[in-house]
Design a protein around this nucleic acid. Structure first.
Lengths: 138, 138
DNA sequence: GTAACTGCAAAATATTTGCATCCTT
DNA sequence: AAGGATGCAAATATTTTGCAGTTAC
């Protein structure tokens, strides 16, 4: 089991309160977090700006990735081991629940490959499924 | 060929300058538009607020749909005929070019169905592929 | 004539930038 | 000690809301 500090170190980031706290939140959350989620749920309160900058650093260094949404927010979730800086492999399906609004990373469901029209060269794909999640189906 | 007015009428919307103009922009654009795109590219300038409200109406009535993005913007694109009010069938793949940043609707590429873990009930899916588009591969 | 649409003003929210201070290495 | 991270203040940008005047049917 990798410690928070190890993950930060491995990705070339200094170990600071803000980063430990926010990364910790991701580790104990099985799912995706928005900027607002993070701002509200850290032990200590951090400045809005710090949260922005921390998330940005995390994305740059490959610790987390962004998940597309249709409302105008960005969701972030932990990358698995095969994400390295500057080269994300965010190839699993994300599930957004219409009831509880939670987003779940379906690690075991990989995004299928599609055949594109001539001339289109793909580098990454993402897939979102909406519906009702495990918890809301009780 | 359906006229702009027909489309508006068919969807139960009053025919107004703003709506004709914005719908026209979608019809002559083969791709997706952001709020900002629309604000800049209409013949006449419309108020920001009018654009917001028009887009909202269009989405509600099933004329356009929202496309998820990883930056914090929403893109909108025309729905095809099988979208009806309140029930979008936005089941084709969207392609975002890393070079020119344009988003293209790949009408002919349908989103594949994936098998979800037990307990998850899907209602809609969306898929985004990033890479280099037709134009940028010249 | 009535309901719906628009533009303006203003409020509420979200994001970015600069700078001085403090922390990590 | 030096570079990096943080918090605060302030500048920008984005989205929402209320209201009065105008337009579509």
């Amino acid at each position: 089991m990798e410690s928070i500090n190890d993950i930060l170190k491995k990705n070339g980031l200094n170990i600071t309160e803000g980063r430990k706290n926010i990364l910790g939140l991701f580790l104990e959350t099985n799912g995706a977090l928005s900027h607002a989620d993070i701002e509200k749920n850290t032990e200590v309160e951090f400045d809005r700006v710090t949260v922005y900058r921390t998330l940005q650093k995390f994305v740059e260094s490959g610790i987390i990735h962004q998940i597309p949404t249709t409302d105008n927010t960005i969701l972030y979730a932990l990358c698995k081991d095969n994400c390295v800086a500057g080269h994300h492999h965010d190839e699993h399906v994300h599930f957004i629940c219409n009831d509880c609004e939670k987003t779940t990373c379906l690690e075991n469901v990989t995004v299928p490959t599609v055949t594109l029209p001539k001339g289109f060269k793909p580098t990454h794909s993402a897939m979102i499924v909406k519906g009702r999640c495990l918890d809301c189906n009780h």
